[in-house]
């Protein structure tokens, strides 16, 4: 796979570290359900998936990657907060 780092350009997946579901949000309250969702529940779709990758062997930016888990096609990548949907 190839991933486009917003800072460094298109790089091989070997430079990145996969860090999981990008949709989980650290709760700001003590709500038990919210914490369970954050710590233990994950989106796990068979298809398009919004996920975090760290450019660990590069600029070390954490980026959001939209990728298909069935075909491995990478649709899009951007810095967190850059996408209106987030």
């Amino acid at each position: 796979m190839k991933i486009k780092c917003p800072y460094c350009g298109v790089r091989d997946q070997g430079e990145f570290s996969y860090e999981g579901d990008a949709t989980i949000k650290r709760p700001q309250t003590d709500d038990a359900d919210a914490w369970r969702e954050y710590v233990y529940s994950r989106n796990n779709p068979r298809g398009p998936h919004k996920e975090l990758w760290s450019h660990i062997a590069g600029c070390r930016a954490w980026i959001v990657v939209e990728r298909n888990t069935l075909t491995h096609e990478v649709y899009n990548s951007y810095l967190p907060g850059e996408n209106k949907d987030d």
């Binding site: 570290s17 860090e19 650290r26 975090l52 760290s54 660990i56 070390r60 954490w62 967190p80």
Partner: peptide, 13 residues
């Protein structure tokens, strides 16, 4: 180190 980067870039930017 990676965890701190997660916190500063994703959780508490």
């Amino acid at each position: 180190m990676l965890f701190l980067e997660y916190l500063t870039q994703i959780v508490w930017p």
